[in-house]
Each structure stands twice: as C-alpha cells, then as structure tokens.
C-alpha cells in the first residue's frame, strides 16, 4: 500500500475519476450515441431502400423498353403478314374474275353465233314463202291475162266469122 501512495494513487481521487468517467459514459450514451446511432441506422436503411427502389425502377424501365420493342416487332411482322395475305388474295381474286369473264365471254360468243344462224334460217324461210307467193301471184296474173286474151280473140273471131 505504501508504494501506491508513493506513485500518487489515492482512493478518493481514484473514485472521483471513476465516477467522472461513468457520468461521462452515461451522458454520451443517453444524449449522443443513442440518438445519433439510431438516426444513422435509419438513414442507412432509407438510403438502402432508395437505392433498391432506383434499381427496381431501372429494371422495370428496361423491361418496359424491351416489351415495347417486342410489341413493335410483333406488330410490324403482323402488318407485313396481313399485307402479303391481302396481296395474295387480291391476286387470286383477280385471276378468278378474269377466268369468269373469259368463260362468260365464250358463252356469249357461242350464243350470239347460234342466234345469228337461227336468224338467217328464219329469214331464209320467210323469203322462201314470200317468193313462192309472188311466183303464184304472177303466174295467176299471167294466166289470167292470157285467158282474157283468148276470150277476146274468140269473141273477135266470132264477130268476124
């Protein structure tokens, strides 16, 4: 114990220093560490959250851009397909119409020809009839005139005789 006092260790002072430090510890803990550390902690979590959100937003944006591109590509392909199909079908339809028209024209020609033939025959027939009538009428007239001339001659002859 003698050596302790020689190097200046004094129970009262030692206790005072311990108490001093413990009070400082309490004050620092209560008024500085606790509020500050919890504040720092909350800020760290908030920053982490913010970073996470930003990352998520970026990812979502990327996804949206990707899906947009995909939709556009799909739409383009669809449009191309529709256009091709329309072209094909219109070509086919045109071909069909052409064929139909040709067929119709053929039948029309055939019909017209048949009609023409019939018409001619009818004309012939009519003309024949008319010619016959005319021949008969003429013959009659000639004969009559001849007969009349015969009769006159006879009468003349009688007068003369």
């Amino acid at each position: 114990m003698e050596i302790l006092t020689q190097i200046g260790i004094n129970g009262k002072l030692l206790l005072a220093q311990v108490v001093n430090f413990l009070i400082l510890l309490f004050i620092m803990h209560r008024f500085a560490y606790k509020p500050m550390l919890s504040f720092l902690e909350s800020r760290t979590t908030r920053i982490e959250e913010g970073l996470k959100n930003a990352e998520e937003a970026k990812k979502r944006l990327d996804d949206a851009a990707k899906s947009e591109e995909k939709i556009l590509a799909d739409a383009r392909a669809e449009a191309r397909k529709i256009a091709t199909e329309a072209k094909e079908s219109s070509e086919k339809r045109g071909q069909e119409l052409l064929m139909e028209f040709e067929k119709k024209a053929d039948t029309l020609v055939v019909e017209a020809r048949a009609q023409a033939v019939e018409e001619r025959e009818k004309l012939f027939r009519e003309a024949k009839g008319e010619i016959a009538d005319l021949v008969i009428a003429t013959t009659e007239k000639v004969l009559r005139e001849k007969l009349e001339n015969e009769g006159e001659r006879k009468s003349v002859n009688r007068f003369l005789s």
Binding site: I23, M28, F31, A32, P35, F39
Partner: peptide, 18 residues
C-alpha cells in the same frame, strides 16, 4: 472533469436533432 463536461456537452448538443 472539464474535459468530460466539454465532451459530454458538445456531443449532446451536436447530436440533438440530427
């Protein structure tokens, strides 16, 4: 004691309302 008081006070003051 002076160091403790100064340290405690300044830490407490500056840590208030972060």
């Amino acid at each position: 004691v002076i160091v403790a008081v100064a340290l405690g006070l300044s830490a407490a003051v500056f840590s208030r309302n972060p």
